[in-house]
Design a protein around this nucleic acid. Sequence first.
RNA 1: GCUCUGUUCGUAUAACGGUUAGUACGCCUGACUUUCUAUCAGGAAAUAGGGGUUCGAUUCCCCUACAGAGUACCA
Length: 511
Amino acid sequence: MQNLRVRFAPSPTGALHIGGVRTALYNYLLAKKMGGTFILRIEDTDQARYVPGAEDYIIEALRWFGIMPEEGPGIGGDYGPYRQSERKSMYGKYAQQLLDAGRAYYAFDSAEELQAQRSAFEARKEVFKYDNNTRSSMNNSLTLSADEVKSRIERGDDYTVRLKIPKDETLRINDLVRGEVNFQSNELDDKIILKSDGMPTYHLANIVDDHYMKISHVIRGEEWLPSTAHHVYLYRFLEWEDTMPEFAHLPLILKPTGKGKLGKRDGNKFGIPVFPLSWKGETEEDSFTGFREFGFDPKAVLNFLAFLGWNPGTEQEVFTLDELIKAFSVEKIGKSGARFDFDKAKWFNQQYIIASSNEDLAEVVRPLVKEKGYEVSDEFLVAFCGLMKERVNFYTDFVETGYYFFEPIREYDAKMVRKKWKTEKRPVFETMREDLLNLDDYSGLAVETCIKSFMEKHELGFGAVLPILRLGVSGTMKGPSVFDMMSLLGKEEVNARLAKAYDAFDGAQAT
RNA sequence: GCUCUGUUCGUAUAACGGUUAGUACGCCUGACUUUCUAUCAGGAAAUAGGGGUUCGAUUCCCCUACAGAGUACCA
């Protein structure tokens, strides 16, 4: 085989969906594994659906994941331009070639006429298809005289170019994921390949570009499987069939619950991200929180995505990108739709956080801390990450569930306070506070020793003392080791918190 | 409707035609622990249904059911 070249070819119609990211990932993995080239091509042939910023979003997302293409718009490469709108002049030529070869024809039917046909068929409970059956009754260069066609074109009438699908043929397609897939040509419609605005449709542009960009493998979503037959015909009629790429159609990603494939709105509906990065659309419904902003690590998301429709056949689940590249193979891609399981995504993220060093975590958490307006030393932050990393799922949890490391306690767990605090015991706890204040060494171990001797002196058990300390210092029963927490907060801070807490506890007890 | 694709615990999936049908997430129980986690040890939980082929089908074939996708001058 010659050089392996794959492309990710999204349409800039909005934020890049997580399913698109998975497609990009699989393309990337295959390219890297085989020493091939990963290419980004922007399919912007539909001006009406073009959304400004979408292209930047796509590139930013790929960069965040660390799966950057080697060729693409703004990146360079020998097969550019990489935006279809900039390749417009190429496509007309091939439409003409197809026309000349009798493999395509002009169609003059207006949108209204087509609509009328559809309605008429619908009334008979049939579905209109522009195909070898119906094209003889439509206005096209097959039914009109040559002169008529010529004059219509010269007159400037709108026309499209349609692919003339042959009659009575069986088309056999080999798909790397699904094996042999057969199509009857009579079931295929005469797809428009050149629109009346002169732009090609996806089908033509895709084939021409893949050919010129020397794409060897087309890895894309299953929604393209039905139109692959048209694509094969295009290759055949353009006489490029001998260099036609291999096809691999990926299973769909399904909604977390219920029916259907994962959609844009599912994110807001289930309160989970379905886009890599946050996106601000025109409206509330068109705005989404991304995995990044949700507090995910890009490596964890990639790992999760890799397993949505693929598995290595071993029992290993946590993979670095390099390991994924080594393990990846098209043969291991699954056939059936994979449901998006947020719990699993969460678990992957947690695995990555736990495996990260405290220093690396601090690096990621620092901007979040700054954003909240907190000012802390690097040393503090690193220690803080060490204390918290085993009890968070997302990066955002650090500053949210661990907020009390940076600002005063917002609220005490009232139920626990009522259960554990006795106002009569306050004098005893005041002596504990003093004992703590007299400590010179405020390491976790020293604090622990101090508390233990305090308990011994007053014949108190862990259950009577530790909850009070924990509540006083963090307000909640959830969190890291009390002693370590106190050590990190420091003597003065702990003392102040305890004094304040005792008052609050008394208040809570009184009500 | 038609075409294409698919169907193993709730979810993701593993299993040369021969296994007590494995693993992970989630769930339940226990251990550890001052709490929450994490960790460890257990547990419940699946081959859609029906026909074949075969000594033997999760695995191969057919039918049914269900699900998904496509059926645009969108990609």
